[in-house]
């Protein structure tokens, strides 16, 4: 089972150092393709777009997702059930449907803006970011909610009994306690943003495309050793993110145990 899961990934890394021009055939060791890759201006540009899209969409969706998680777990408000359902949909909706939705929405919105205000907008960086936030809020909120639900609500009450303002109670009690959940949500958001091909392909403009969409279009034209090298770079990037989230879980579990010990267990 583990061989089935890991062999393809390991072989990909091995073959990315093969000197043969045909990807998947061994022709001696070379790092030529990695050098080529870093000289290719289109790959450099799309890597830049990918990183900027991932960062902007992660920061915004982490803030919005955390706020929704707190609202849903800690408060009652009008429209709560609708909001809750609305936040589940992006998780279960198929990629292709989400892509179609965003494409039609932006086309309609741009037509309307052009008609009413005469503003000519086109798809590009902003539309990619808006779409990524639209699916990431939901994922961040699920991760943070799990953390908030596991947190003792009386701690906040204790803080306000000790004359802490609402903001102080949040800043010094709630936020540190839910921080691992918020970070976990942010890591998931970055991963999903860097992973997405289908939605981005629909909302990207001719000038700005992310690395996965560009690589996808290259593969469809035909595989080259350079694509092997790019894939390995993407693989390493995602593995660093996994290591980050596994490390995070370990650290927060360890801190939890320590807290239990210092408070004598509860």
């Amino acid at each position: 089972m583990l061989i089935f899961l890991y062999a393809p990934i390991i072989l990909l890394v091995v073959y990315s150092f093969s000197a043969s021009r045909i990807p998947g055939q061994w022709g001696g060791f070379t790092s030529e393709w990695y050098v080529k890759l870093f000289e290719d201006p289109r790959i450099q540009r799309t890597i830049g777009v990918s990183i900027r899209v991932a960062l902007v969409s992660t920061v915004i969706s982490t803030m919005l997702g955390t706020m929704s998680a707190l609202a849903l777990e800690r408060f009652k408000f009008r429209g709560k059930r609708v909001f809750d359902a609305l936040l589940y949909l992006p998780i279960i909706i198929p990629d292709v449907t989400m892509a179609v939705m965003m494409l039609m929405f932006f086309t309609q919105a741009f037509d309307l803006l052009n008609l009413v205000f005469g503003i000519g907008l086109s798809k590009g960086f902003a539309t990619i970011v808006v779409s990524h936030i639209a699916f990431n809020i939901a994922y961040v909120s699920v991760v943070v909610r799990a953390r908030v639900a596991g947190m003792d609500a009386t701690l906040e009450q204790a803080a306000s009994d000790l004359y802490a303002s609402r903001w102080q109670a949040f800043r010094y009690v709630t936020l540190p306690l839910i921080a691992p959940g918020v970070l976990g949500g942010a890591l998931l958001a970055i991963t999903l943003s860097l992973d997405d091909v289908v939605v981005t392909q629909f909302v990207a403009g001719p000038g700005s495309t992310t690395l996965p969409v560009y690589v996808f279009s290259l593969i469809r034209k035909g595989v080259t050793p350079t694509i092997n090298a790019v894939s390995v770079i993407m693989l390493v990037a995602s593995l660093i993110l996994v290591a980050g989230s596994v490390g995070l879980q370990r650290a927060s579990a360890a801190r939890g145990r320590q807290q239990l010990r210092t408070t004598g267990g509860k």
Binding site: I9, L11, L12, P23, P212, F216, N228, M234, V242
Partner: peptide, 24 residues
């Protein structure tokens, strides 16, 4: 879980190389 977290496109691409004619 680890392979599941790695890039989806790359995972598919790896099989493209693995299954290619004259490939591994």
């Amino acid at each position: 879980m680890i392979p599941f977290w790695t890039n989806f496109l790359v995972r598919n691409y790896a099989w493209r190389i693995l299954l290619s004619t004259g490939g591994p």
